[in-house]
Nucleic acid binder design. Structure first.
Lengths: 191, 191
DNA sequence: CCTACCGATCGGTAGG
DNA sequence: CCTACCGATCGGTAGG
């Protein structure tokens, strides 16, 4: 019994990720979502308390995964360049493993309401700060040129976030290939 | 009289750009839009035939501006590197002059219905092709390393498209500064 | 440009 | 998990 409920929730979650990504949160109705899952709209509410909760779960779970992916890097001793390379690779991997969900994370978070909205923005800022620090470290260590750090961070993230458009699970480009080429372009771009 | 109508239409267009950007197309109602303009919802239909027409106008006008911005470059003789630099700068300038509209162009086009949707995608592909050619030209001319062209193009566009998040009309960063630093990172990244 | 209104659809609940 | 339903809001129209 318990397993069936859990499976249903996963099923709802997956259908929602896919629908939010392709149609956007606002244009995705609970009725369409229910149809995708194969139940009635009212039955969704046995598994989620409302529509926004689904969005919230997606956004914050991906945020968790991003944080998890750089947890070890910050403590490592080593050159900023290598650390940034590793951080980029890990970031791309998180996206590749969660293509639909990460697309929602990047574009649909603005439909969160308070206080989640503010918390989400803070988490994102905090995560970006790790990359900012790595770049500053790299400039201090003379591995990078004296670039505008703010622009550099924005460039990195927007480039990385193209991954979910570039990576197709059954396509020719592997996540590793994308990660390598992306970090290549970025690291060289900062030299 | 005619001027009043034109002004009203511009006013609607501007309010729509702003609202579509901040709330998304689906979450923007004609009633909210009317309130922003200071008229009743029904009165909007004296200036636009429906909601989607507003979106369509925004998307295709920005597409026009992007094409216009590279029109001269393709015919110029010169090094691919310089041409790409110029194309990047022009692209950033278009975004900077149309921050709200270009944000809508990048994120809300998916709410267009056929046949506009297909036409829009084709236009975008065609525009991207110009950049792809410039990169290939640069590789042939040995100004760029033998990068994965597809990934490179994606990286360029996603980096460039961060401009509308980075550029604030009254902020410290000028469009020129952003354009220069961005083309710096990208051009170096391809070496 | 407005008042008055339409049919459709929305997120969500009651009650079983 | 379903049927039946709620109040609210949607895009859009008629008619002036």
């Amino acid at each position: 019994m318990a397993e069936l409920v859990i499976d249903r929730k996963k099923q709802i979650r997956q259908a929602a990720q896919n629908m939010f990504r392709s149609k956007g949160y606002g244009a995705s109705s609970m009725r369409d979502l229910a149809k995708e899952v194969g139940i009635e709209a009212a039955s969704l509410y046995n598994h989620v308390s409302n529509k926004e909760e689904i969005l919230k779960d997606i956004c914050f779970q991906i945020a968790d995964e991003f944080f998890e992916s750089i947890k070890d890097i910050e403590q490592t001793k080593g050159k900023a360049k290598q650390k940034l390379e590793k951080a980029i690779e890990n970031h791309v991997m998180v996206i590749a493993k969660n293509i639909d969900a990460s697309s929602v994370f990047f574009h649909e978070w603005k439909h969160l309401s308070e206080p989640d909205l503010t918390e989400f923005k803070q988490l994102r800022k905090q995560y970006e700060k790790s990359f900012l620090s790595l770049i500053e470290e790299g400039i201090t260590q003379k591995q990078f040129r004296d670039a505008n750090v703010k622009i550099a961070v924005f460039t990195i993230f927007s480039a990385l976030n193209a991954t979910y458009d570039l990576y197709k699970p059954n396509g020719k480009l592997t996540a590793k290939t994308i990660a390598k080429e992306l970090s290549n372009i970025i690291i060289n771009g900062l030299k």
